[in-house]
Amino acid sequence: MIELEHVSFSYADQGPSVQDVTFRLEKGEFAAILGANGAGKTTTVRLMDGLLKPTSGRVLIHGADTAKSSVSERAARVGFLFQNPDRQICKNTVREEVLFGLRTVRGQDGEEALQERADAVLKEFSFTGEEEPFSLSRGQRQRVALASILAVEPEILILDEPTTGLDYLECCQIMDRIRRMNEERQVTVIMVCHDMEVVLDYARRALVMAGGRLLADGPVPEIFRDTDLMERASILPPQMIALGLRLGAGFERADSPEKMAETVLSLRGKEAAR
């Protein structure tokens, strides 16, 4: 569980990037932070892991103030996947990379247990373990980064634009894996993402930011249907939502092409019956 209480943050000699943000994430939630460039999304997720300390307000993880403990101590419970996997990867093989993360935070479990854990994770991600990370594609490197974070079984997963620069298949691979962690192990997920289709497909809750403030907080489809809110936050809703809004009553639930087609057919059926 993560709580932000009236959190504000300003970078040195700049105006505030996050202002008076308050929300609370329960265990097992899958939330996305939406907003235009410069809305304060990345700053907010950095604050959540204590990589930045709030100028005012408090961030609590499982009730403990992040200002009172170090980020590295939290790594066993909070995993952070960055946009650029190359900043994380530092070993010559995928196996060593996964083991590096494990040894850093789960060293007390003993080498044998860690080796077993690494094997299991590599198998799950279909890596042999002998691959050299820097000869893999960007998408594959992002999977290596994700594998080494998931290996330590964090309770909370923070994602900062995890799919930028990836192609469609790579994006699905990463996001499907994260969804499984969320559903099977109740891992709390919070992500910053610019691809609204990805947000619609995977996240359940949306936090909308603009100018450093939290504008709205609610279920994903409802947030996207609030045209006034989308305008204020400079967000373009996903295509099927936008189409549903244009078509009006009866299309509220049609947020995927399949559901849209079903809605069209059932309305057609009713029309024919009359």
Binding site: S70, V71, S72, E73, F82, Q88, C90, G101, V152
Partner: peptide, 16 residues
Amino acid sequence: AGIMEAQTARGVAFDK
């Protein structure tokens, strides 16, 4: 700074 941040987040005790 980005690298150190990423490593700290995965448990390398740069911050201490």
